[in-house]
């Protein structure tokens, strides 16, 4: 019976650890947005510098410096998004989990202690944040993928049109639409996973609400 209790508690605490990780993803979305926005602003600055340089005759569009600026634009943009992704991953990996394990090793008293120390209102808040975070995360991922694909495709289309002289045809809109389709396609599994996770978090929220409600109402009579 005591083993059953510790096993069940382990499941509960593992689920709550997972919620903490998800909460960290939500918390790091601000970092992700700042890093991404910073890289977009830097990339656009390089692009503006390239355009100014050509307009005011500092260098020609076919010069190495113009090519370097175009390359830097793409590198900064893609690099910024990749770095932001790594940063979020790093923050999530540094979330301390399993700190309850030594307490649970005590058996039933440990389980009681852990239950006493749980702050249910904070847990429910975290789950709600995690649910919202996953929705934002899924959409952001599609948007960032679209941005990268659109930049790469437009870059390739620009290069192609300069070779085959199809400047009369505006490829930008085509490439942008194509990028949306590709972005959704490559993220379809992740979107499905996030959708299921949001549903599961919802289920967990209801289960824990029930537990909290029942457990709080009941009083152990000694």
């Amino acid at each position: 019976m005591e083993q059953n209790l510790t096993a069940k508690m382990e499941m509960l605490m593992t689920a709550l650890d997972q919620v903490r990780k998800y909460k960290e993803i939500v918390a790091s979305m601000a970092d992700f947005a700042v890093i991404t926005a910073l890289s977009i602003a830097t990339a656009l600055a390089f692009l503006m510098l390239a355009k100014f340089g050509v307009l005011f005759g500092w260098f020609n569009p076919w010069d190495g410096i113009a090519g370097l600026l175009a390359l830097l634009t793409v590198i900064v943009l893609v690099g910024g998004v990749v770095f932001a992704g790594f940063w979020v991953n790093r923050r999530v990996r540094h979330v301390k989990v399993g700190q309850w394990k030594p307490t649970l090793e005590e058996g039933a008293p440990g389980a009681i202690k852990l239950l006493q120390e749980l702050n249910w209102e904070n847990i429910f808040k975290d789950i709600r944040r995690a649910k919202m975070g996953f929705t934002i995360y899924g959409l952001t991922r599609v948007f960032i993928s679209w941005l990268i694909i659109a930049v790469v495709l437009n870059f390739a289309a620009g290069f192609l049109s300069s070779i085959v002289h199809v400047a009369e045809i505006n490829l930008t809109l085509t490439m942008d639409l194509l990028s949306v389709v590709i972005a959704v396609f490559i993220n379809r599994k992740d979107l499905q996973k996030r959708y299921e996770q949001v549903g599961n978090l919802d289920a967990l929220l209801w289960e824990l609400r029930w537990f909290d409600n029942e457990f709080r109402r009941a009083d152990f009579e000694t």
Binding site: A37, L38, A41
Partner: peptide
């Protein structure tokens, strides 16, 4: 605030 400023810059 930083994000807001960056969005305005962009």
């Amino acid at each position: 605030w930083l994000l807001l400023v960056l969005i305005l810059v962009i």
